[in-house]
Amino acid sequence: MRKSLLIIFHTLFFLGLASVAFAQEVAPEVVGNIALATALGMGIAAIGTGIGQGLGLKGACEGTARNPEAGGKITVTLLIGLAMIESLAIYALVINLILLFANPFI
């Protein structure tokens, strides 16, 4: 118990020292957190977009299989849906790139 408390105390102490040492520039924890946030953000955006596009395509294929004559109308609706879903992923990508390379807060 005492040993682990000592290790925790030392770790916190050195982390504190590191922030003092890097006070003039961006703290490394901040950079690490930003990298983690962008990775998580892009991953979640890609998952959501993938699920959304997959569901849309599934519905469109089922609709065309049931009624092949409606294929043209379904294609237009699918195209609009895909474009709108994909724009969300591109927005997330832009925000992540801003956070990584053009962050206004650091």
Binding site: G50, Q53, L57, K58, C61, I74, T75, L79, E86
Partner: peptide
């Protein structure tokens, strides 16, 4: 490119998901 792909995807009976996701990524 989405418009070009959507026209072909809609008439694929099987395996339409792989080209969609591949082209998306």
């Amino acid at each position: 490119f989405i418009a070009k792909l959507a026209q072909e995807l809609i008439y694929m009976q099987r395996g339409a998901l792989a080209p969609l996701l591949f082209s998306f990524y």
